[in-house]
Design a protein around this nucleic acid. Sequence first.
RNA 1: GGGUUCGUAGCUCAGCCAGGUAGAGCGUCUGGCUCUUAACCAGAUCGAAAGAGGUUAAAAUGUCGUGGGUCCGAAUCCCACCGAACCCGCCA
Length: 569
Amino acid sequence: MSSSPENIIGKGTWIDKIAYTLVEREKKLGRSTYNIKVESGLGASGIPHIGSMGDAVRAYGISLALQNLGYASELIAFSDDLDGLRKVPTGLPKWLENHICKPVSTIPDPFGDCHDSYGQHMSRLLLEGLDLAGVKYTFKSGTQTYRSGILTEQTHTILSKSKLIGDKIAESTGQQKYLKFLPYFPICENCNRLYVANSIDYLENEKAVTYSCTGNTIGKKLIQGCGHTGQVKIQSGNGKLAWKVEFAARWQAFDIKFEAFGKDIMDSVKINDWICDEILKFSHPLHAKYEMFLDKGGKKISKSAGNVLTPQMWLKYGTPESLLLLLYKRISGTRHVGIDDIPALMDEYDLFEDIFFGRIKEPNDSKRLKINGVYEYINHIRPPVDDSSSIHIPYRILIQQANLFKNQNQGSDQLLNIIFDRLKKYRLVKEEDIKKKDLINKIKLAINWVGDFNDLNEGEGEGNVIRANEKVEMTSIQKDVVSKIGNELTNLASNLENKSKDSKTQDDDLAQEVQTIIFNNAKNNNLQPKEIFKLLYKILINSEKGPRLGNYIVDLGISNVVKVIEKRT
RNA sequence: GGGUUCGUAGCUCAGCCAGGUAGAGCGUCUGGCUCUUAACCAGAUCGAAAGAGGUUAAAAUGUCGUGGGUCCGAAUCCCACCGAACCCGCCA
């Protein structure tokens, strides 16, 4: 393979490569390339995590690449809200136990009355993430889809050939279940639950399934059935296909040409591909397999475990662009991902932007191309025309700054102004930059970050989090000295109010004066200045070291500092 | 049992998925400076002094897990092996 410009497909990323493969495949299959549909399945049984978001975002990327190559394309976001609740996710109310196995679209919203159902609430969370990231999609609800009869024909075909399918499933995955039962889960009309009723016969003429609610093992638990036997018409929507066959039905019904999947459902995809080709006679969509996102400890991020990293969490501390960068950068390779990756990705996005606009040179052609491509996808292939308005301040600096002032009980608007003033002092920004929304937003994100995490390096360092009212341990002499310093600072502050104090040089003098107060008090009591400085850092920022105290205390406002000292000694 | 990914500097990792100069941060070593706070030191520090501490600039650091293959050219593609992690195993 050569990477010479004439051989570059689209924007030169993995996304383009898949899109190109997809188009070539469709042509070969002799199918129409008018409006190529790509799909992403949205789990609705638990709180959507970064991985669910990745599935949808990457599918959307393919869709963008197709558009870029000149084909109309749309992303179908399909919510599995007819799935039954198999387990109550950690952190959710206990009463949900009573709704185990019921379709999530029939379970009340555990977060209050904000949505019609459990399933709708969960789907909305993910869609909200997609909206914030600017991803466009066409939403489909599983429940609606089944009720409106869209899948009836496919269901009929599948159930008519259930013997063949059962054998195939047994052969390729070893799963024996469908040798005995149909790959269809009725909602028991007596107990309103899925999975507990096994379907026995398919009555082709009536398009109905007979079932008996005899119970089943879900996960590792045996769930009792209610004993009811009944019949359900497949177009009623009171039942659904098993996962092993459902994707295929959906793909054909919605004319899906591409769907990515995580390696955890590889078996299901394989068997669905076969059903799609052989039973439904619809060439299965092209796939891209991606690795699961793992948390830093190496465990799969899943909806039921307690380690969920949600799009909402990410967007509290990072821009949508930083999240899209994570998801678009590459598709293969296990990703250990955590909140603490945000600062690096925030800065990397700025770097990409600088390269895109030529402010930073990237001599390697193919690398530059790829970076530009990823940048364009992050911007939905409509990148800004010029970047004269953007200011790149390393996110870490914003975090540092925010961290310095976070204990002052100020409102976040005030904190924002303080940080902005300091950035001005360092000449990183100019006065008029206060109007730049991107910059202000970034500062706000940094403020959120330090509100929840103390340190840059330690996402897990909760031990350092300051509890504002906690006393700092010290000897009585130390205590004495610190309180003397407090008094002198109070005097200094009140003297100050009588004078006008607007000039900058005065601020500098003041800082010197503060520094002298601290130093003298230490000396006069035969204490190492070092000791007292350490104590003050401990009190103010819960650290052994910090910025030059005189300036810092002036920046914080002397009276604010006195308050903190009083509270913590 | 089936499958996938990862292995790169002392440490943490990027680069690999479209082959073309081996990279970053931290640490280490060396020199300059000790300077208006981008979380440096304690400022008028300790020491008689060399120096210490700090900062900054540059440098050093590599069998790219091992072995083979393709290629003009391989960290990157292919195969085998070793090590680690993850997913699936009759749930969806």
